[in-house]
């Protein structure tokens, strides 16, 4: 097991290294400079600026400096906000994004499991059909469309929740729903399929035969086993939450890193773009690592496969 985890961590570091490298060279290929807005600068000013940001050094040296900085958690200095370190900028915004992402994940998985389980138990009834239709819609409607509709109809027209902003719990509800519906639909579909499989298996029949009530069968036998494979979806969910956060945070005006990322792209703020990319990748890689570990802990068959590969 330890060997397996160590191997995973080695991959993780390799992945991050690759991301950092790709990001660095892509940014260097980017057309235009961060100063294009200040076209009136003189040659000397430009030289001084280049020296200050280290752009006068050869490319490989910039690369090494950049990597060395990363190891120390130093992402450079943002061009956008007068000389604010990127790490500080990201640090001040990551909390909102993490909270939103976590809330959306919990919301999606919790209701997804419930809806999926009910649909499986009431298989081929109107309940099942309704759940299927809802999950198809939830899967198909883009989250940014849903966000705009929720914001307008629930917040503005009905006035149930604040329209935008961040701080109080009621402000987090609409963005959480908008962001969580995708995972919810996916979970519901997944749990339904997996639960139908479980419910038709022999040990469920045995459990019923030995006289357990339906609730006990579901709770103790069916649900647990149907939820194990759900762990593998954590990675894809994280990706979709990160993607979603970029627009949802924009629509609801939430000071998170997704919103920051889009803003820094539109303003050519390289260090922030690079820093955010690394943070996103780090987040995903950690989630994938946790997924693998948790999965191998709860399902020994995976562990065996992993150790001989």
């Amino acid at each position: 097991m330890t060997k397996y985890i160590l191997k995973r961590i080695a991959y993780m570091i390799l992945t991050l290294f690759i991301v950092a490298t790709i990001t660095f060279f892509l940014m260097k290929m980017m057309p235009g400079s961060p100063y294009t807005n200040e076209a009136k600068m003189t040659k000397t000013q430009l030289r001084i600026m280049n020296e200050q940001y280290g752009f006068n050094k050869p490319l490989w040296e910039q690369y090494v400096i950049y990597l060395a900085g990363l190891v120390h958690g130093d992402f450079g200095i943002s061009f956008q906000y007068s000389n604010m370190p990127v790490s500080q900028l990201i640090g001040s915004r990551i909390g909102a994004s993490a909270q939103l992402g976590l809330q959306a994940m919990i919301f999606g998985v919790f209701f997804g499991v419930i809806i999926g389980a009910i649909a499986a138990i009431k298989r081929n009834t109107w309940v099942d059909t309704t759940a299927t239709v809802l999950s198809i819609i939830g899967k198909s409607v883009p989250n940014f469309v849903l966000a705009v509709l929720l914001q307008y109809y629930i917040a503005l027209k009905l006035g149930w929740f604040p329209i935008a902003g961040w701080g109080t719990f009621s402000q987090t509800i609409l963005p959480t729903i908008a962001l969580g519906v995708g995972p919810l639909a996916e979970t519901a579909r997944f749990v339904r399929t997996s639960m139908v499989d479980t419910l038709t298996s022999d040990y469920i029949e045995l459990a019923t035969a030995k006289g357990l009530s339906l609730t006990q069968v579901i709770r103790k036998h069916a649900l647990r086993n149907s939820m194990i494979p759900l762990v593998t979806l954590l990675g894809p969910y994280t990706v979709s939450l990160m993607t979603g956060s970029m627009v949802i945070e924009n629509i609801f005006n939430i000071p998170g890193i997704g919103e920051q990322f889009v803003k820094s792209i539109l303003t050519n703020d390289y260090p922030t773009i690079m820093g955010t990319t690394i943070v996103f990748s780090l987040g995903l890689v950690i989630v994938l690592l946790i997924t693998d570990i948790v999965y191998s802990l709860i399902d020994p068959r995976i562990r065996l496969q992993g150790s001989d590969a």
Binding site: T15, V19, T23, F280, S281, L284, L288
Partner: peptide
């Protein structure tokens, strides 16, 4: 696939 595609 463990690189967040979208970001890249």
């Amino acid at each position: 696939s463990s690189v967040p595609n979208l970001v890249i």
